[in-house]
Simulated scan of single mutants.
Amino acid sequence: MDLLSLRYFRAVARHQHISRAAEELRVAQPSVSRTILRLESELGIPLFDRHGRRIRLNEHGAAFLHRVERALAELEDARREMTDAAGAGPGRVAVAAETLLQLAGVLAAFRAHRPGVDVRLFQAPVDSMRRHLRSAEVDFALASQPLGGPGLCSAELLREEVLLAVPPGHRLAGRERVAVAELADEEFVSTRTGHWQRALLERLFAREGITPRVAFEGDEAAATPELIRAGLGIGLMPAVARRTLGERSPVAWSRLDAAADCHRTLTLVWRENAYLSPAALDFRRLAMESFMPDAS
């Protein structure tokens, strides 16, 4: 069992597709297929269920993947630790976030403090961020919804209310408060399933026993105000958006009666016992100072 076989297996397990894994690995598809078959033969058990040309990770494969990701992450930590010890270059910091806009201030401060450090950003929903962390592809995840689990540490950076945004002239424009039940027949502009705005919307509606009508969905929450202004629907936006847009806001804002539960919690997450380079430690400190000015 060599490292190449384990890396091939991890790619196939993630994609559940030989061709896509081969594209990621930049190798020929037959090479990937042969490697997986050889690995299964060596282990003495199938790791995938096969139905024609389709493959699915089975329970044995899932258990094996968990340990493979831990092993490869440890090796990546070791490689980076030795590289830093040797003084080979200014280092690297990798961060995953649902939206990169919220990282702008932290990155500016970090770049000024540590010029030359290679900063890698991944835009991803919460499930992908968890995978990036487990495999040591990123040092940190900046999550707007719960991202916990065994082997993960976190620090809450920010907690803010989420508001209802509607187009000017809408029947709810000018209302100070709106009940969730009043929105049952409204069409929403939201992010795709997996992002925090969509998860919050569905959770609030589920408590009322109704399902939100999502007319337009995408991956970039920053476009939501303009889509709402255009009359394509209403939506949920964090309070920071109202402060950022200020007087030029293209939408009208209201609070939801469920305000106690209608909030976003921004959390910085990293792997427990993971190797964090001096650059990564500085990034964590600056992130906490940026969002929590009183943090030490």
Rank of each mutant, 00 (worst) to 15 (best):
M1L: 15
L4F: 13
F9D: 00
H15M: 09
L25A: 03
R26M: 06
A28T: 10
R34H: 11
R34T: 03
I36G: 01
L43E: 05
L43T: 08
G44F: 06
G44I: 03
D49N: 15
R54K: 15
H60S: 10
G61S: 02
A63L: 13
E69A: 10
A71N: 07
L72G: 02
A73L: 06
E74I: 01
E74G: 07
D77A: 01
D77M: 01
D77E: 03
E81R: 12
T83C: 04
D84G: 04
D84S: 06
G87T: 06
G89W: 09
V93R: 09
V93Y: 07
V95H: 03
A96M: 05
A109T: 08
P115W: 09
G116D: 05
G116H: 11
R120H: 13
L121V: 08
P125L: 02
V126A: 15
S128I: 06
M129Y: 06
R131N: 10
L133G: 04
L133I: 02
S135M: 11
A136Y: 10
E137Q: 12
E137M: 14
E137Y: 13
L142F: 08
L147T: 03
L152V: 05
C153M: 14
E156Y: 12
L157Q: 05
L158V: 13
V162Y: 13
L164M: 07
P167E: 00
G169D: 00
A173M: 00
R175H: 12
E187W: 11
V189Y: 11
T193A: 12
G194V: 06
H195P: 03
R198G: 06
R198V: 04
L201N: 09
E202V: 13
L204Q: 05
A206C: 14
A206I: 07
G209N: 10
T211E: 11
P212L: 09
P212V: 03
G218Y: 09
G218I: 04
D219N: 15
L227S: 00
L236R: 07
V240M: 09
V240N: 09
E247I: 04
R248L: 02
P250W: 01
A252I: 00
W253M: 00
L256Y: 08
A258W: 04
H263L: 08
L268Q: 09
A279L: 03
L281K: 14
F283H: 07
F283C: 01
R284K: 13
E289V: 14
F291Q: 05
